Each structure stands twice: as structure tokens, then as C-alpha cells.
Amino acid sequence: MTIEVRLEQQGIILPEAAAPVASYVPVVVSGGYAHVSGQLPFRDGELMTGRLGENVSLEEGMEAARACGLMLLAQLKQAMIPLDKVVRVVKLGAFVNSTPDFTDQPKVANGVSDLMIDVFGDKGRHARAAVGVAALPLGAAVEVDGIFALADA
């Protein structure tokens, strides 16, 4: 089964890939890996903002992390990398805009981790970092970057 069929069966629709907000490129392919720059969460075209532990719930944070994952996949497609060429999700880095006393960053990051497993199956299991930060670009609640191993790259 192709990844496109898997997405369709799960009712997953990828968003339009977001344009960079600064001086970087969204995807760099080198040495058989696609490195995808940090992606922000969008729901219905609106940026999901706020801080976990202040005005964003754990469930909303997980949804934001999942939205970042959808944008990671959208960036791969925008870069003309068929999702079926992904042989492994290698590593994800989740940055959570959170208060100093919020300690559930790993649970927030499960939103993106679970998405990758839903989409790629066992190839979606990955190494990961989940850290709390004082602020993110544009006030985003979560930002996620990723490294993907590619076939024939």
C-alpha cells in the first residue's frame, strides 16, 4: 500500500507547505537524508499559538505537534520527494512553548510521533528530542523539525 493510499484511508489531508519565515530553505537533501526545517502548527490555515502550562492544554499541544508533522510531510512533497521514498523517519525534534513548571513536553511530542507511526508504520518509529522553550517564532505553541532517510537519494 502506498503512503498516499494510507493517508487517504486515515482521512489525513496534508496542508499547503508553508513558505519560510526567514533566511533558510524548508528541505535539504544530502547523503541520502532529507533534513526538514522546523515547521509550525496550522489548523484551518491559522497558526496555533500560545504556551503550554498557561493558555494551551496538553491535548491542544498534542494537536499542534501533529499539525507540525503534517507540515513536515507537506514540505517533503513540496520538495518533490515522494513519501514512498521515505525508508525511515530517523529523528524528530519537538520544541514546546511552555512555562517553566510545565514538564509534559514528551507527551506533547507524542502528537507528531504517533502521526509518523500512523503514516509510515514501523518505518515511522524514530529517535526524538522534546524540549520546553520560553518562546517560538510568531508565538507558535510547538515547532518540529525532522530527519528522514530516503531510498535512492
Rank of each mutant, 00 (worst) to 15 (best):
G93E: 04
M71G: 08
L73G: 02
A94H: 00
P100R: 11
G61N: 04
N55C: 08
M71K: 05
N97G: 06
E63K: 13
A134I: 10
L76K: 06
D101R: 12
I117S: 03
G124K: 09
V144L: 06
A135K: 15
F102I: 10
A67N: 12
N97L: 04
M62S: 13
D122F: 11
V119G: 09
V144C: 04
C68I: 09
L115S: 03
L136G: 08
L73F: 07
I117C: 03
C68H: 06
A64P: 03
V133K: 14
L136D: 09
G53F: 07
I81M: 06
E63G: 10
R66C: 08
V112L: 05
H126S: 09
N110K: 13
A140N: 06
V89S: 02
A79Y: 07
L83D: 10
A65M: 05
Q105P: 01
V144S: 02
M116F: 15
V112Y: 00
A135Y: 12
L58A: 05
A129Y: 09
P82S: 13
G69C: 08
V56I: 15
G61C: 07
D104N: 13
E63F: 07
L136Y: 12
L58C: 08
E54A: 14
L70V: 09
M71H: 10
L115N: 02
C68D: 04
D84P: 06
V86H: 05
V131D: 15
L70M: 13
M71S: 14
A135D: 14
V96C: 05
V90P: 00
V142C: 08
V142K: 00
K77V: 15
V87N: 12
L138G: 02
L73A: 06
